[in-house]
Design a protein around this nucleic acid. Structure first.
Lengths: 201, 201, 201, 201
DNA sequence: AATGAATGAGTATTCATTCAT
DNA sequence: CATGAATGAATACTCATTCAT
C-alpha cells in the first residue's frame, strides 16, 4: 500500500487551503477575508498556511491559476469530440453551463479577479490569455463549420469573440439577476440566435 | 451675478469627491484606496470628505449610484429617437460604445462593483435593476421591430437578454484584452450578427 | 433706559457658555463633550465660543472657578448669622443640602473635577483650598461652640475636617445611591451624630 | 515542576495589563491614556492588549471590577474577627486605611470611576452596590454593638451610612489635601467622634 | 461680532506575518 | 511539521481650532 509522499501531502494541503480560500473569499472578498478565516475553514492552523504559501497574495495568485485553469478542460474535451460544428458548439455550451453551475459558489471570486484584472496588468494578462484560449477554440469550431458549409463564410475571429463575450455576459447577468436567468437555457438560446445569424439559409 | 448657494457648494464638493474617488478607486481598488488619497486627489482635506460623506462606504455607495445612473441617459434618448428598430439598435450601440469609451478610466470601478454585487445583496439588487432597465429598453426596440415586420416573431425577452449580455460581455473583453478589441466595432459586429439571426430572410 | 455695555454682553455670553457647558459636561464628560455640543446647547455658534474663551480647556477652567465659588456663598451667609453653634451648624447643613439639591444636575461635573484634581496639581490645589475654606468656616463655628460651653473642648481642626469629610462623603453617596438617600435628612442625621459626640453631656 | 497552563498565562497577562492600565490611567486619565502607553507600561505590544481585552473600554470595565472587588476583602475579614463592636470598627478602620494607603497610586482612577458613575448608570450601579456592601458590613457591626449594649439604640442603617460617607469623604479629602491629612489618624479620629456620639454614657 | 466650512493632528483597532516552542 | 501568541504597520474617523466671509 503506497504511502503518501511528501509531495502528495503538500499538494493535498495546498488544495485544502485553496478550497477554503475560495469559500472564504467568495463570502468576504479578498481583503475582508482574514488568514484566520481561511485557516479555520481549512481546518489548518494560521501558521500552517504559511508553510504552504508564502503570503495571502500567494494564495490569491495560486487560486487565480487554479480557477481559470479548470475551466479550459471542458472546452478541450469538446473540441476533440465528433459531430458537426453546430452540434459541437451546443455541446460546448452545455458543458460550459454545467461547469459554471458547479462553480456557482466561486463566482464572486471569479468576478473579483476580473475587477483586479482591470487594474493589474499581470492578472489582466493572465485572464486575457484565458479568454483568448476560449476564443481560439471557438474560432476552430466556427472555421470547421465554415469549411464544411454548415456556416456562411463569416469573420471567424469576430464571431468567436462575439460568442466569448456572450458567454461572459450571460454568466455576469446570471450572477446579477439569478432569479430571472436559467444559465443553461439562456446560454443555449443566445448561441442559437447567433447560429441563426451565421447559418446558411 | 448670483453667488453659489450653500446647496451648490455642497453639490460641487460632492462631485469633486466622487470624481477623485473614481480616479483613486480605479487605480487602487476600494480597499487599498486611502481616504487621504481621495482627499489629495480632490484637492480637499481629509476632514472635508467627512463633511460631505459620512464614511468611505458612503462615498462608495454614492459612486455606485452615480456611475450606473449615468449610463441610462444614452439609452433613454435613443428609445425616443426615430427610425426603424434596426437603425435604433445600431444607434443605441454606438451611444453605448461612446459612453464606455468616455468612462474607460472608470471601468475598474464598475467591475469592482460587479464583484461586490456578487456577494452583497444590496449592490446586486441595484445593479440587477440597472441591467433590467437596459433589457427593458432593448425589449421595447425588438418588440417594435417584430411589430413592424422588421424582425421575425422571436422571444423578445430572450433576445433582449442576449443583447444585454452581449453588451456586458464585450465590455468585459474590451477591458481584459484591450489591444485585440475595438469596442465600437466589436459591439456593432456582434449586434449585426444577432440582427442577422432575428431578421426576416 | 440703560443699554447693556460691551462688558455686560461679554459677561452674559460667558455665563451662557458656562451654563451650556455644565449641562453638556454633566451628560458627556469633559472629553466626550464636543465644542459643537456646547455651541448648540448655548444657542451660540461654534466660532462664537472662541470669541469668549480661548479654548475648551479655558471653558473647563472657568467652570471650575464658577462652580466652586458658588458653594461658598451659603457658608459665608451662615457664619454671620446669629444663634448658637449647634443651631448655626444645622442651618449651614440645611443650606448645604439646598445648594446641592439645586446643583444636582452639575454633580457629575463636580465629581469629574475631583477626578481631575487627583492627577493635576493646579486643580487639586484649587479644590483643596476650597475645602479648606469650608473647614475653616466649620472650625470657626466649632470654636465658638467650645468657647460658649456648648461643646466639649475638642480638637477643633479635627472635628472640622471630619465634618467636611462627612459633607463630601454624604454627597458622594447621594450621587451613587440616589434612591436610598435623602440628602438633607442624611446630612442632618450625620451632623447630629457628631454633635452628640462633641456635645456636653 | 508544572509549567504555566494557558489559563495561567492568560490570567497573568490580564493582570499585567490591568496593572499597567492603573498606572497609566492614574497619570493621564481614561481618555488621555493611549493604548500604546498601556502597552509600553505593561511590557506587551499594542496588539497583545487586544488578545486579552476586546477594547480600551473592556480594560476600563475590568479595572472597575478588580479595583472595587479588592477593597471588600479587608472588610469581610474584620467582620469575622472577634472583640467588641468598637474594637472591630477600629480594626476595620485601620484595615481600610492600610488598603487605601497601599492603593494611593490608584486613587485618581477610583475617583475617575466615581465621576463616570455620576453619568453612567451601569458604573453607578456597580459602585452603588459596592458602597452598600460596605454599609451592610458596618450595619452588622453596629447592630452587634447595640445588641451587646455597647452602643445606644441608634438608627443602625443611618449610622452605617454616616460611617460609610465618612470613609469616602476622608479619603476624598486625603487626596485633595494630602499634606494636611494623615489618612489613618483622621479616619480613626472621625470614627471615635461618631463612637462618642453613639456610645452609652 | 458672528458664522460654519475647512483643516489635520491624534488614536483605537485590525490583521498579515513571524517565530518560539 | 505545526501551533498560536505576539508584533506593529497601517488607516478610518473625530473634533478642537482657525479664518475667510
Amino acid at each position: 500500500m503506497p504511502r503518501q509522499s511528501r509531495q502528495d501531502i503538500s499538494k493535498e494541503r495546498k488544495n485544502q487551503i485553496l478550497d477554503a480560500a475560495t469559500t472564504v473569499f467568495a463570502r468576504e472578498g479578498f481583503h475582508d477575508a482574514r488568514m484566520e478565516d481561511i485557516a479555520d475553514e481549512s481546518g489548518l492552523s494560521k501558521g500552517a498556511l504559511y508553510l504552504y504559501y508564502k503570503s495571502k497574495d500567494a494564495i490569491i495568485a495560486a487560486l487565480l491559476r487554479r480557477l481559470f485553469a479548470l475551466e479550459l478542460r471542458g472546452l478541450r474535451a469538446v473540441t476533440e469530440g465528433g459531430g458537426g460544428a453546430t452540434e459541437r458548439l451546443l455541446a460546448m455550451t452545455a458543458m460550459f453551463a454545467t461547469d459554471f453551475d458547479r462553480m456557482a459558489f466561486a463566482m464572486p471570486v471569479m468576478l473579483e479577479f476580473s475587477a483586479v484584472a482591470a487594474r493589474q496588468r499581470s492578472v489582466r494578462q493572465y485572464l486575457g490569455e484565458s479568454l483568448e484560449k476560449y476564443a481560439a477554440v471557438l474560432s476552430g469550431l466556427i472555421q470547421d463549420g465554415v469549411a464544411s458549409g454548415e456556416f456562411r463564410p463569416v469573420n471567424v475571429e469576430g464571431v468567436a469573440m462575439t460568442l466569448t463575450a456572450l458567454g461572459e455576459g450571460v454568466v455576469l447577468l446570471w450572477v446579477m439577476v439569478p432569479r430571472a436567468m436559467h444559465l443553461r437555457e439562456q446560454l443555449e438560446a443566445a448561441l442559437r440566435l447567433v447560429l441563426e445569424g451565421i447559418g446558411v439559409r
